[in-house]
Structures are given as structure tokens and as C-alpha cells.
Design a protein around this nucleic acid. Structure first.
Lengths: 210, 210
DNA sequence: TATAAACTACCTGAATTCAGGTAGAGATAA
DNA sequence: TTATCTCTACCTGAATTCAGGTAGTTTATA
């Protein structure tokens, strides 16, 4: 018997999920909560197999709540629930311990598949959520066309900057003068139009140079 | 009639794909190449609808070739082909202009679906490739457990550091003294055990704080 | 009310970065 | 051989960061 807990401030959602699962005899809805406080109280003494977590709750940030649940509860599989579809939120949820992500317009089949996959240790995203995540990579395609040409040495310095090394440490590592390292860093800044190292690294990441 | 071009150094692969598609009357295999040089020569005067690109070629780096093809050829849909399954390669291929990614152990159905989806403007990854990409997010789950507690202000400063702002600019933006900003940055460095801002940002990213 | 954490602000001095240059040597292609 | 690009190295001076502290005020909680 799989236990499932629903955290959502809209009774409609809990009701809809109940209707979807009422004749699935291996899944038991063991409770619902309307806000984070209520949820954490329940989870103090219970460990459901599946937690459906609305990421837009009235009293708390869904990302934070996900993290809190994960820290207290290592076993449950957390499925994020939302009406919106934002790659950044999705990936942050995964970072913070969620095992999957569903849209509230899901069909019954999708919910059952999600439950099955996460219980089998996989990550499940709804189709459109999955597309959003992938698009974030492809969305920098247009950046390719004006990618500046870096020299071999410049790439080397960029990588070391990205590792967090300071000028003198890089110079020592590469058997160069600190002045030389500084010159390469300056050239990089000019090529990527940056006025600080942080900006340089940020731009380089955006352009797929790192 | 959809034209498809195969770039792979193994005749087995081209042959296998030919067998898969020989009775698909809307797809025409317009050629094959065994290395990057040969491929670029063909693509100088041809623009197939689909390009299947082996990422391990004898004469060139598949990622670079992907990029070169994309820069010369805006319309074709590029599907990466590989025997291995590495999230980093996958995402880099997408960065560099690929529209999808297939494993060489694909079934005919999967190849047809991939072709269909990329021609419809979607990104297609084989199931296991897709899992690899998602796992890279979840793979930092374990970092959650020793995540340092940052104050609200510290998070704010961290975000601004990540945007590339310098101390005085942050102070101005937040209506604080530069000394105050510097103190928060120092506290962050201590909490994350860093001795430069670059290190701080790197560690913060690794721990999912950014 | 008392306490602790967070926030704010400051100091000194050293190290590093940033900005604007200069210039010679080595490697490569025409 | 010449021209060009890359690499190496240097200078000055200003700005910023880093490192080690100090201390008062505000906020939230018990």
C-alpha cells in the first residue's frame, strides 16, 4: 500500500487528485495540508511514500518547504505541483530534493506514471516541464554566432579564474609572471566586455565558454 | 521528402540506419561521411533536413564539428549520436546547436520519433540521455544536508555578487555603507570557507545556494 | 525583560584587481 | 622576408578586495 500526502492550499486540487486515485487500490491518500506549517506538523510523525507539494503556498516558499521536508524526511518521494512552468523553478526543486514535477493540468495516467517512476528511483517531469528544462540549454544557441575567439592561453586563464584562483597563484601554476596573467585577464575582459572578474565569468558561462 | 545525412566513421552505423529507414518513403538518405572534413565539404553545397552526427570522429572533436555545422547551416536539425551517455556532453551539444541526442542502441521507433519531434521544433533526447541530464540536478541532493544557514541579507549579497556587481555598486543599490556590504561578504566567505569571491561563488553554486 | 541573532557601520593595512598603456619575442602563413 | 597574431612581460596609479578586528542598534523569541 503506497501512502500519498497532498500539500495544497486549494481544496479543488486535493479533491481532484482524490477522484483520480479513488479506485486505485494500491494507493492510499493519508492526508492533506493547506499550508507549510500544517504539513510540517503532520510530517513530524509520518513518512508517506509520496508527497505532492504545491509550490505556491500562502505561508511559505515552496522551494524552502521542499528543502525542509527533504532534510527531515529522506525516504519520501516529493513531486512538485504547479500551474506555471518555469525551468528555473523546476531545476531548483530538483536541487532541493524533489524527485519530480507535475503540472496541475495533468491527466490521471501521468500522475500514475509519475508515482511509479519516482518510486522506482527515477526522476519524472511532465512532458512540457521536461521541454522547458532542455530548452534552457538550447536557448543559448543564438549566442553561438557571435562567440568571441579566445586564444588557447586565454581559455586556460579563464578556466583557472573559474576555479577561484587568484592572479599570483595562477602565475605560479603556469610558470608565468603575475604581469602576464594580468594581461591575459585584461584581454579576456575586453573580448567579453566585462569590468570585473565576476562579470567576465558570468558572461563566459552565458556564452557557453565555460 | 525529408533528407537525412549521416556522419559516422563506422559503416555499420550508416548501414543500420539505412536498414531502419529503407521502407520509410518520406525519408531519403542523401549521403554519409566518415569524418568531419568530408562532412564539411558535403555541407558546403547541401543542406539536409536532418544531420545525424557521431560525436566521436577520428579527425575532429564532435562538439566543435557540431558548432561549425550549426554556424554554416542554420536550418538543418542536428541529432547527436553516441554509444556513451554523459550529461555534460549532452548539454554541451545542445549549447552548440544540436537539436537532440540519440544512443546508437536506439530502436527504429525512437529514431522516427526523434526525427519527427526535431522537425517540429522540439528538442529530443533518448530516454536514458534525458535521465542523465535530470540527474545532474538531483545529484547535488546530498549537498543539502550540510548546507550552511545564510541570512536573508547574506543571500541578497550573494545574488548581487553573482550578478557581477562590485562592492560600492551593491552598497548604493541596497542603501547601505560599503563597509556593511564588505562585512556581509566577509561573513559569507567564512560560512563557505572561501578566500576569494570567485571561490565563494563557485562553492555557493556547488551547494545549490545560487 | 533578557538574550541571541541579524544588521549596520567602522578601522587599519596589505594584497589584489582594474585601467590605461608600453614593447619585445616567437610562431605561422603568405 | 614580411606581416600578423599570440604570448610574455612590464609600468603607474587608482579602486577594490581581503583579513583581522571593533562595536552599537534592531529584531525576534522565550
Amino acid at each position: 500500500m503506497i501512502t500519498l500526502y497532498i500539500i495544497d492550499d486549494h481544496p479543488l486540487v486535493a479533491g481532484g487528485i482524490y477522484m483520480m486515485l479513488k479506485d486505485v487500490n494500491y494507493i492510499h491518500i493519508c492526508g492533506t495540508a493547506r499550508n507549510g506549517k500544517e504539513a510540517m506538523e503532520f510530517l513530524e510523525t509520518n513518512e508517506p511514500d509520496i508527497i505532492l507539494l504545491d509550490i505556491s503556498l500562502p505561508d511559505t516558499d515552496g522551494l524552502q518547504l521542499c528543502e525542509q521536508i527533504r532534510q527531515k524526511n529522506k525516504q519520501s518521494k516529493i513531486l512538485g505541483l504547479t500551474s506555471a512552468n518555469d525551468a528555473s523553478i523546476i531545476t531548483q526543486m530538483l536541487h532541493r530534493g524533489a524527485n519530480g514535477y507535475l503540472l496541475k493540468n495533468m491527466e490521471r495516467d501521468e500522475l500514475l506514471e509519475a508515482i511509479d517512476r519516482v518510486l522506482n528511483g527515477k526522476i519524472f517531469l511532465s512532458k512540457s516541464a521536461n521541454e522547458k528544462v532542455l530548452e534552457q540549454y538550447a536557448s543559448v544557441n543564438s549566442a553561438l554566432e557571435d562567440k568571441p575567439a579566445l586564444t588557447r592561453r586565454e581559455k586556460e586563464i579563464l578556466d583557472l579564474l573559474n576555479e577561484g584562483l587568484k592572479g599570483p597563484a595562477m602565475a605560479e601554476k603556469l610558470f608565468l609572471s603575475p604581469y602576464t596573467v594580468e594581461t591575459h585577464r585584461k584581454n579576456l575582459m575586453q573580448k567579453l566586455n566585462a569590468s570585473s572578474t565576476q562579470q567576465l565569468l558570468k558572461t563566459a558561462r552565458e556564452k557557453g565558454l565555460l
